[in-house]
Amino acid sequence: MARQNTLFKEAYNRCLSDIEEQENLPSEPELGEKYGISRTTVRAILGRMRDSGLIEWDKRNKIVLRPPKDEDYFPAEETNSLNEIIERAFMKRILTGEASPGAQISEAEIAREVGAGTTSVREFLIRFSRFGLIEKRPNSHWVLKGFTLNFALELSEVREMFEFKSAAAFARLPPEHPAWAELDAIEDEHHDLLADIENRFLDFSALDERFHLLVHRASGNRFVIDFHDVIAFIFHYHYQWNKTHARARNERALREHLDYIAALRSRDPARIDAACRIHLASARETLIASVPH
C-alpha cells in the first residue's frame, strides 16, 4: 500500500503540472497511458482533484476549474519517479528471497503491486534484461536467472576497470570544472551523515550512488556512464536489503569515500589508485558476502 501511495502522489503531481494549460482532461485510458499508471490510480487522482476543487468530474467530462497552487502538490520527499517505484518492487523480489533462480516474474503482478500500468513495467524489465539477470518468456512472463556468485564477481571486475579509469580522469579535470563543486557538496553530506550515523546509516546507499556516478561521469565515456545503471542498481539494493552489520559497514564505506575524495583532490595518481582500490575491495567483499553460496 505504501508503494501504491508513493506512485499515486508522484503521478498526481505530474498531472497537476499538466492541467495548468488545459481546459479539459483526456479520457481515463489516455491518462493511464500517459502517466504509466493503472485505471484505479487514475480514478484516485481524478477523485482527489475533484475534492480539491481543481476539476469538475462528471463521467467523461473533466473540466479544469482552476490552476493548481503550490499547496496542492505533494512534497517532493513523499514522491519517487515511476521507474524508481517499479525498480524497488522488482529488486525486492530478487534480493529478499521472494524469488529464486528459475522463478517466474509476472508483469501483471508487479503492476498490480505498485499501481502502475503493465506497459511501464514491461519497458523497465526490457531495459533491465540486458544485464542478464532475467530472460523474457511468452505470455508476459519473465524468468529469473539468478544473482549468482559468478555474476557478482563479473560485475565487480567490470566496475573496478571503469572506476579506475574514471577516477584518473576526474583528477585531470580543470579547477573550474563544476564537478569539483559537486564533490564539495557530496563531501559535506558525508560529514553530516557520519555525525548522525546511528540514526541515518540507511541513507548511505543513495549518497554512495551519487558519489560514484559523479566519478563515472568524469570518464566522458557514454558506455561507462550507462553501465553505472547496473552497478548502482545491484550495489544500491544490496546495501538496502542486506541489513547484516549495516551500520558498521556503511560507516566504514563513508570513511573510505572521504579518503577517496581527499585523494581525488590531491590529483596524485598513486594516492587515487590506492584509495579507490581499498574502497572497491570493500564493496566487492560486501556484495559477495550477500550472495547465497
Results as ranks from 00 to 15, higher is better:
249 R>P: 02
96 T>R: 02
35 Y>L: 06
253 A>M: 03
53 G>D: 13
213 L>T: 08
219 S>E: 11
154 E>S: 13
178 P>I: 08
72 D>I: 12
122 R>V: 03
99 A>H: 05
47 G>K: 08
257 H>N: 06
79 T>L: 08
105 I>K: 00
281 A>D: 13
270 A>S: 12
85 I>D: 00
85 I>T: 12
151 F>M: 02
8 F>L: 15
155 L>P: 00
118 T>A: 11
193 L>A: 07
251 E>C: 08
258 L>V: 04
94 I>T: 00
152 A>N: 04
125 L>N: 05
120 S>P: 02
196 D>N: 12
104 Q>H: 08
276 C>D: 10
112 R>Y: 11
196 D>M: 10
221 N>H: 03
104 Q>S: 14
221 N>A: 06
220 G>N: 09
293 H>V: 11
241 W>H: 10
155 L>V: 05
209 E>I: 01
107 E>I: 15
271 R>E: 12
142 W>E: 11
173 L>M: 07
113 E>T: 08
166 S>E: 10
96 T>E: 13
104 Q>G: 13
47 G>L: 13
157 E>N: 04
53 G>N: 09
195 A>P: 00
55 I>Q: 00
24 N>R: 10
105 I>L: 15
289 A>I: 01
221 N>L: 03
20 E>G: 05
182 E>A: 15
183 L>E: 01
248 A>C: 06
42 V>W: 02
21 E>D: 11
25 L>W: 05
202 L>G: 00
190 H>G: 04
276 C>L: 12
238 H>R: 09
165 K>A: 15
209 E>R: 07
128 F>R: 07
97 G>D: 10
26 P>K: 06
234 I>C: 03
73 Y>G: 01
40 T>G: 08
92 K>L: 14
134 I>M: 07
27 S>K: 10
43 R>C: 09
241 W>R: 01
20 E>Y: 09
208 D>H: 14
69 K>V: 14
59 K>R: 14
172 R>D: 15
292 P>Q: 12
195 A>S: 14
106 S>Y: 03
81 S>W: 11
123 E>N: 08
242 N>I: 08
113 E>P: 01
165 K>S: 15
293 H>A: 15
265 R>C: 12
109 E>V: 08
178 P>R: 06
140 S>F: 12
4 Q>N: 05
15 C>G: 05
1 M>N: 04
26 P>I: 14
149 L>P: 00
69 K>L: 15
41 T>L: 14
